[in-house]
Write a protein that binds this DNA or RNA. Structure first.
Lengths: 190, 190
DNA sequence: CGTGTCATGTAATCAGTTACATGATTCA
DNA sequence: TGAATCATGTAACTGATTACATGACACG
């Protein structure tokens, strides 16, 4: 029996397929839309992974010809696939590896004009504030809009994470900007 | 003139070399120790990058034979290197791409026993609490210990980021655990 | 005498993105 | 008519990690 590649994106796909059969195109759309904030998946990754999962027996496939071309290929999770998916939850989690060009710049910030960092930070702060507002409104709307979903509590936890992440960023960026603006005004007195 | 590879790690190296000449080994040690929380650099990446930077004229190199073998290769940043480094600060920042296996599991958490997620979260919460305490103590100690450093304010901003990140994680994880434990107790009444 | 640190490097591998190719359908 | 969306796929590339090879020196 062939082995699966070591990509966690496999489990994102199995997760979606646990909710019902769908195509690679559908999987890409759902991934971008609902888990894009913490998980990415390109077509160049999804299509080959689906082929591998088929080889390994975690999914089955049937074509749906709706007159259009190419035929839509609909994937269905198998019992083996379900078992593999559930087994994943009891393996060790990979801790999030954060790579931050912003922090890299700030750490070595004394070698460049502070204005550059201020501009960077203000841009990101604006974005983060917008996302914070978005998460806030989703936290309010989702319980009403998706009250029927049995997995709503799980979705709410991931939304709450987005909220806290951006809240923390905004809080920090405001403090950082204060420091940097102070440095900048001392660099150019008057 | 040959072109440099498109790796931001180059700028981490230029940053360190802006503080004085040093070897690839030194660069690796400093990177791991002081910016490892937000930037990684392996030997397999650092040594080739140093060769490229030499080809391109951003650094010069001289060997230091201290009797030991292999000879220590000490790299010095050039004027061109300094200019390139400073220019980097006025290019657009790449936003941090977060990939979180933890959030992926939680999003699809309804398909697995909640106990698995609880165990995961409790482990990560413990780690994060420890790091939070570490950042708290560094925030207190650094201003005393490194008062003479001209770039102390910049370092403090990066420390503050570590503090806020883990503070946010702890806050969120505690709320998430409450929800999950609630689900778990409803799954197995009595 | 063996483990750990200092010190440099290369080759293989890997996950993932980007760019490209194809072509039907839908809608302004 | 031409852009946007639906739909599948492959090849090339890239940034990065891992594993390996080599060897001296210091410390207990």
């Amino acid at each position: 029996m062939p082995l699966m590649k070591n990509s966690k994106t496999t489990y994102a796909l199995l997760g979606w397929l646990s909710t019902g059969p769908m195509s690679g195109y559908d999987l890409k759309r759902l991934t971008d839309r609902y888990i894009g904030q913490f998980w990415a998946g390109s077509f160049g990754q999804i299509y080959p992974l689906l082929h591998d999962m088929l080889d390994v027996g975690w999914v089955t496939m049937h074509e749906e010809r709706t007159g259009s071309n190419p035929a839509k290929k609909v994937y269905t999770i198998t019992e083996t696939g379900r078992r593999e998916f559930v087994a994943w939850f009891s393996t060790p989690v990979e801790p999030d590896v954060a790579r931050s060009e912003l922090l890299l710049r700030i750490f070595f910030g004394s070698f460049a004009p502070p204005e550059n960092l201020i501009e960077c930070l203000e841009g990101l702060l604006k974005d983060s504030r917008a996302k914070l507002a978005l998460y806030e409104s989703m936290r309010e709307e989702f319980p009403k809009q998706y009250a029927h979903l049995p997995n709503l509590p799980y979705i709410m936890i991931t939304l709450d994470r987005g909220f806290v992440v951006h809240q923390g960023f905004v809080e920090w960026a405001e403090r950082a900007l204060k420091t940097l603006k102070n440095i900048a005004s001392n660099d150019h007195p008057q």
